[in-house]
Design a protein around this nucleic acid. Structure first.
Lengths: 233, 233
DNA sequence: CGACGCATTGACAGGGCTCAATTTAAGTGG
DNA sequence: CCACTTAAATTGAGCCCTGTCAATGCGTCG
């Protein structure tokens, strides 16, 4: 699963989060956090008030999900290296009923509420950068909200595949491979549909030669065609 | 339209945005912005890079909408007094294809990118407070995203009415009145459905005695029943 | 190699969108 | 104050997309 070159790379310690902050301060900020290794499938919880922490992903990938009564789960987003998550849990006092599952072995750095607030007061650019990423996500989810309202399922699935591909694609000779285990069920939970509909869409695209898919594995063989479909319906 | 007592009040100058900042600095921050009066129906645009500004609502109410090809509009949220909007336009360099329409006569204060960044660097709590509200909205829209995925339309409409009621309700002897012009079409754009479906839902609830509605006017006569319906389906 | 989990495919039903025709209410100008 | 205009709301009929359920196939991992 390591062939090909990634379209997009990110490392936490030199992410946009630290722009505007002197390089020698990075280490200080990183050291005030706690490093944790996660094995594939391990779950992080964000509930339990005093102990809430926010997490930066160093290595690996987290699947941020939220439950909505009766077992129906939705995937809110994937958290890639260089990104931070669960800030909501830290800043909005109330419980944050979400869970993050490690997709593959991962490494995270976490801070408790008090520490992160002190760091932000000490380094205003840190607060501003966190604000920027929060706003980017707000924009992202607002767009997905619009799509969910206005577009047909198959179109939404196409957009989701493309979005994930841009974040986690590896260029291979076959096409762009999504380089982590992504099942039909995951895509369904991410786009708000059922695994059956996702399966039908993929079969459909496979016939047209736009993708090649297998068990928890998707390769986009004709990105242009898929983009065209995503945009015109 | 002024009978009854509001459930919820807000003024910009003493909003959560300024918590942790010395009172005498409020005026300084407010004065570095530009005051604008809007008449009902007037529209703000957030595109046009150099001039982008973010807006705080002093008085009145803004309807934040986003277009999605072919005239289909979605209402992202209502901005109430004490809240700020269009921070996305300021922080994420790209265009923010959204518009805010004044619902009733309104007054806003706005800052350009440079000014707001300087203010946040000078007053770290300002950045932290903006981060907090951004995260609250992120949480809000994530929840609505889940609802859109998991719930039936009628249930979503109920949640929307309740949400708006909590923000903009006035207690009258008839029930809780939503104190601004809110048409079927608005509710439909807010919940991702059609005005026909909204109309049917309201007719339905009217028969049950949960609401009393008229032209661009909704009174929730039995909030408990509506809450029960919103939560159980 | 066997068993479990993931994926595929078909049949079916129904929720909600679309379109069209009316009715009701608000606003406007004489 | 009333007639007129215009926009909002209601209601019905039809149909399509997509969720649901069931049966089967297949790839992986223990």
């Amino acid at each position: 699963m390591n062939e090909g070159t990634p379209l997009h790379t990110g490392t936490f310690s030199r992410s946009a989060l630290f722009s505007g902050i002197a390089a020698e301060k990075h280490a200080e900020i990183l050291n005030s956090g706690r490093r944790t290794l996660l094995e594939s499938g391990e779950t992080l919880f964000f509930e339990g008030d005093p102990a809430v922490r926010c997490y930066g992903v160093q290595r690996g990938r987290l699947k941020l999900g939220k439950l909505h009564e009766e077992g129906r789960e939705a995937i809110v987003r994937y958290i890639h290296p260089g990104e931070i998550t669960a800030a909501v849990a830290v800043f909005c006092a109330k419980d944050y009923p979400a869970t993050a599952v490690a997709v593959g072995p991962s490494e995270v750095i976490s801070w408790d509420r008090k520490t992160i607030l002190e760091l932000m007061t000490a380094y205003p650019p840190l607060a501003i950068n966190m604000l920027r990423t929060a706003l980017e996500r707000l924009d992202d989810i607002q767009n997905r909200y619009l799509e969910l309202q206005a577009e047909r399922v198959e179109q939404r699935i196409a957009r989701a595949v493309l979005r994930i591909m841009r974040q986690s694609g590896r260029k291979t000779e076959e096409g762009v491979l999504i380089d982590f285990r992504l099942g039909r069920r995951d895509l369904a939970d991410y786009t708000g549909t059922t695994l059956y509909t996702v399966s039908r869409a993929l079969s459909n695209w496979e016939k047209k030669g736009w993708v090649a898919s297998g068990r928890e594995r998707i390769v986009v063989t004709d990105p242009h065609a898929l983009v065209a479909f995503a945009e015109t319906g």
